Simulated scan of single mutants.
Amino acid sequence: MRVQPQAWIAVAVVVGYAAIMGATWFFTGTDYETVGSTAASAMQGIVLPVALASLFTAAVTYWLGWWGPALRDTPTGPRWLLVLPVLIVLTALGNLLSHGFEGVEARLVLTLALGTLLVGFGEELTLRGVAVVGLRGSFGEVGVWFFSSLLFALLHAINLFFGQSAAATLQQMVFAFAIGTALYVVRRVTGTLVICILIHAFWDFGTFVAGASTGAATPFAVLALFQYAVIVVAIIGLVLVLRQGRASTQRAHVKAA
């Protein structure tokens, strides 16, 4: 690594990412409440700003020399926790199919697919990649989990300034902290950021498609109930991952002594 990890670097990168998003939305006159409703709004409000913000994070990651630790981790925790990404995908599938694709034009689907893939890449590289690496330079793993999830939640506060209500923004931030915790566990269990990127993208894709659809609720909507299982397994997984990581650190200290 060219630069040693420190927490302030993590915070600076997240702030930079948010600033680029906010500046782009400001200059394009984006209204968060209508983002993803048409192909044009998805291109303006998702693809363009997220592409610019992701380019920023990717360039900073390269300059810091953090690509390796940002993308890879030592797999930690019991193997059964691999059920967590499966539960997240099932929930996202329920969101995607909850109202079908009625009223959703093909161009919008393709634009949302591109935009949410960029969101998955950009937000995960920023929060579960660079932020995790930077925070590890200043905190133990409990602090890394808490502050990376908190930064993920705070990132969504920007929506308040672009048309989203205060109540909806607060609810989104609380949920972001919870799903951020789940994605942190996924990173630790799988040992790779790539899985986090893909399931994050699929989750957002399902959410935007469901929001754009004009169809009635379908039986597939019941799959969205897996979100409660996601939260429960994420909490259990967090405890197990942090406990195993602490035990590994203690064994390493004993051997060193």
Rank of each mutant, 00 (worst) to 15 (best):
I46F: 09
T181I: 06
C196W: 01
Q244I: 06
F152Q: 03
F146C: 08
V209S: 07
A70Q: 08
F121T: 01
V50R: 06
S41D: 05
A167L: 14
F152M: 03
W63L: 10
V13D: 05
T218A: 01
Q227L: 05
A92W: 00
I197D: 08
V130H: 05
E123Q: 04
L225S: 10
A201L: 03
I179Q: 01
I197E: 08
S149M: 06
I197A: 09
W66P: 05
L96K: 00
W145M: 15
I9P: 09
R72D: 12
L96Q: 05
A176Q: 01
G103R: 10
I88M: 01
A221W: 08
S54F: 10
F139C: 02
M1A: 15
E105Y: 10
P78W: 06
Y17Q: 01
V89S: 00
V119N: 09
A19K: 12
V209P: 09
V60G: 12
E123W: 03
R187K: 13
S54H: 06
F208H: 03
A131W: 02
G137L: 07
M1N: 14
V233T: 10
L87C: 00
A252E: 11
G211R: 01
V185W: 00
A176E: 01
L117P: 01
P219C: 04
G68E: 13
L240D: 02
L117I: 04
I158C: 10
L223S: 07
T30N: 07
F162P: 14
V47P: 09
V14T: 09
G140P: 07
I158K: 10
A153I: 03
T57E: 11
V11K: 14
G211D: 04
W66A: 03
W80M: 06
G245T: 11
A256Q: 14
I195F: 00
W67D: 09
T116Y: 02
F162S: 11
G100H: 05
T214I: 11
W203Q: 05
A40Y: 12
Q250P: 04
L198Q: 05
I197W: 11
E105N: 15
G115Y: 02
Q44I: 15
L183W: 02
G137C: 09
F202Y: 11
A229V: 09
V119G: 13
L127P: 05
R136L: 02
A106Q: 15
I88R: 00
A40L: 13
A157S: 15
L238Q: 15
L117E: 01
T181Y: 07
L242K: 06
V104G: 06
A178G: 08
A92V: 01
F205L: 15
V47D: 10
T76L: 02
Q227T: 12
R246V: 10
W25I: 12
G94D: 00
D31I: 09
V241S: 02
F177L: 03
G103V: 13
A168S: 13
L225V: 06
V14F: 04
